[in-house]
Design a binder for these strands. Structure first.
Lengths: 191, 191
DNA sequence: AGATACATGTAATACGTTACATGATTTT
DNA sequence: AAAATCATGTAACGTATTACATGTATCT
């Protein structure tokens, strides 16, 4: 079974959701570590339903022009499936960051051209860092005593990895920009 | 043009290599941020050659039972292609870490089962951290005055991101393990 | 006036993974 | 005796991306 199926089950293990909801949550909550698109979402949901891991909980007819909202819930079998998967040892994943590939070839171009790219990525990662930091603060305020059997405990853990990741990325960008600026200055005058 | 093509060009921009060499380097040097397998490698190389971005530099016949070693070099067109790609602004990539998905669902299982998984990942990431740290030290010793137009400058930059990433991951594992242990202790006695 | 939100879904294409195939030499 | 190293490549399958399709209400 593929990761995307577990991703959907992980969301449904917390509360019943529609496909639309799942997409929102995935791109907002597990956001830094997974994402999904429609063409994976709907067939995967159908597959999970056929396997008896999720079931249609309600079929709310909307304003007629809009498709009916199909809310799914995880089944007992689905929950057990997730539990078995969680405790199964796994290897580290490869990151696959195209920007790192670019940095690996950045010696081929003028530092003047690389610095704006790094500044742009720094900004992007700083934005996400701020968003995650705010989110964790909000969660902790909501519930100061998190214990490991609460869904929010795990949510916070994942967002905290997001924070650590974004902070590292931001710091690394800053450091490399500084290094490129001095390395550029000692290279020779441009004017 | 896909990332994998740029990955191969990025390697060949530094020195001529065989397909086999490229695979080794990718799984060792840009390792944390990209990887490749044979079925992508050889057709992609053929495609790059057809597009005139790389060319066959030599065709060394080996011990007869072994296929001839085909060494490729980047062309001027290939180099320009890489340069244009490097300075093109790009979005952040999504990480897609299956382990984070598991942590997101870890509230469903006993902390006693989660701790070993975290310890295992901590160990894996610590190992890579040590390897990258040693590599950077070696690079810096080889050449203490790195300037931005040297390939090694970029190599070091990428490996340093690797170090930052592995350190964050390791620290996060440690912190979460500690938190699970206290959270577990306060949960109630098992014996 | 145009973009965004809601809500489902499909078609076509591109990309990635696992396993297989050859085959002697060297290391464990 | 078994596994890894070198070195190329292919077959089959599974996963992911982009774009499209429907259709109104509301926000900018």
């Amino acid at each position: 079974m593929s990761s995307i199926q577990y991703a959907l089950l992980s969301l449904l293990a917390r509360e019943p959701l529609s496909g639309y909801d799942m997409k929102q949550q995935m791109n907002n909550r597990i956001g830094p570590f997974w994402n999904i698109n429609n063409n994976q979402l709907y067939p995967t949901l159908a597959k999970l339903e056929a396997e008896g891991l999720v079931e249609l909980q309600s079929y709310e007819q909307q304003e007629s022009y809009r498709p009916a909202r199909k809310v799914y819930a995880i089944t007992e079998a689905g929950k057990e499936h997730v539990q078995k998967w969680v405790i199964k040892p796994s290897e580290m994943s490869t990151v696959k960051d195209e920007f790192m590939l670019k940095v690996y070839s950045s010696w081929l171009v003028d530092p003047e051209s690389v610095i704006p790219l790094l500044e742009d990525h720094q900004r992007q990662h700083e934005e996400r860092l701020a968003a995650y930091t705010a989110k964790v603060a909000e969660f902790r305020e909501q519930n100061p005593d998190l214990s490991s059997e609460m869904p929010l405990f795990s949510t916070v853990a994942v967002v905290e990895m997001g924070i650590a990741y974004e902070r590292s990325y931001t710091d690394w960008c800053k450091q490399l920009i500084a290094r490129l600026k001095t390395s550029h200055g000692s290279g020779g005058p441009t004017t």
